[in-house]
Amino acid sequence: MSDIDKLARRYLASWNEPDPVRRRALVDELWADEARYVDPIVTAEGRGAIDDVVATAQRQFPGLVYRQAGAVDCHHHVARLTWELAPAGGPAVIAGLAVMVTEQARLRRVYGFLDPLPPIPSPGATR
């Protein structure tokens, strides 16, 4: 297994880790000091903010898991990971693409794309 494949697996594992302490340890190991995550819904600067984004996604999509949906493609220090969000063993409800910019075997930037884009709550809306 290549280093980029290992990095992609660790990235998805961090999104699936329900224990906040273990998840934060994964985020800290995985992301570079000046980490940044951007998708159509959120921008997160720094490991703490990225961990918050992952925790929020877990609350929004309980019972769903992130899984790799194809081979990781990579050149130079940029990788493309396709993924799905689905119930364990079930069909995907969201598919996505993560463009990962690496630095010394860690994530420096991740740009996420979602299909379909999940509903975004209005500011101040309650569920």
Results as ranks from 00 to 15, higher is better:
Arg36Ile: 14
Arg36Trp: 07
Arg36Ser: 14
Tyr37Arg: 09
Tyr37Leu: 10
Val38Met: 11
Val38Asp: 03
Asp39Gly: 12
Asp39Lys: 10
Asp39Glu: 04
Pro40Arg: 15
Ile41His: 13
Ile41Phe: 15
Val42Gln: 09
Val42Lys: 07
Val42Asp: 14
Val42Leu: 13
Thr43Cys: 02
Thr43Asp: 13
Ala44Asp: 12
Ala44Pro: 09
Ala44Gly: 06
Glu45Asp: 15
Glu45Gly: 04
Glu45Cys: 08
Arg47Asn: 12
Arg47Ile: 06
Gly48Ile: 09
Ala49Met: 02
Ala49Glu: 13
Ala49Lys: 04
Ile50Trp: 04
Asp51Val: 02
Asp51Arg: 00
Asp51Thr: 04
Asp52Tyr: 01
Asp52His: 08
Val53Leu: 02
Val53Phe: 08
Ala55Cys: 01
Thr56Asn: 05
Ala57Thr: 10
Ala57Trp: 15
Gln58Ala: 15
Gln58Phe: 09
Gln58Val: 05
Gln60Cys: 12
Phe61Ser: 08
Pro62Gly: 14
Gly63Val: 05
Leu64Ile: 00
Leu64Ala: 09
Leu64Val: 00
Tyr66Thr: 10
Tyr66Glu: 06
Arg67Pro: 03
Ala69Lys: 01
Ala69Thr: 04
Ala69Tyr: 06
Ala71Asp: 15
Ala71Gln: 15
Ala71Cys: 13
Val72Gly: 00
Val72Lys: 02
Val72Arg: 06
Val72Asn: 01
Val72Cys: 05
Asp73Ser: 05
Asp73Trp: 07
Cys74Trp: 09
His75Asn: 10
His75Ser: 11
His75Val: 11
His76Gln: 12
His77Asn: 14
Ala79Thr: 03
Arg80Leu: 08
Arg80Ala: 12
Thr82His: 06
Thr82Glu: 14
Trp83Leu: 12
Trp83Pro: 05
Glu84Pro: 05
Leu85Trp: 00
Leu85Phe: 03
Ala86Ser: 03
Ala86Arg: 00
Pro87Ser: 11
Pro87Asn: 05
Ala88Gly: 01
Ala88Asn: 00
Ala88Trp: 02
Gly89Ala: 02
Gly89Met: 06
Gly90Met: 10
Pro91Lys: 07
Ala92Trp: 08
Val93Cys: 05
Val93Leu: 11
Ile94Gln: 03
Ile94Leu: 09
Ile94Asp: 09
Ile94Ala: 02
Ala95Arg: 04
Ala95Cys: 06
Ala95Ser: 10
Gly96His: 03
Gly96Cys: 10
Gly96Ala: 11
Leu97Asn: 06
Ala98Phe: 02
Val99Pro: 11
Met100Asn: 05
Val101Asn: 01
Ala105Ile: 02
Ala105Lys: 02
Ala105Thr: 04
Ala105Gln: 05
Arg106Asp: 10
Leu107Pro: 01
Arg109Pro: 04
Arg109Tyr: 14
Arg109Asp: 08
Arg109Gln: 08
Val110Gly: 07
Tyr111Trp: 13
Tyr111Gln: 10
Gly112Tyr: 07
Gly112Leu: 07
Phe113Ala: 13
Phe113Ile: 15
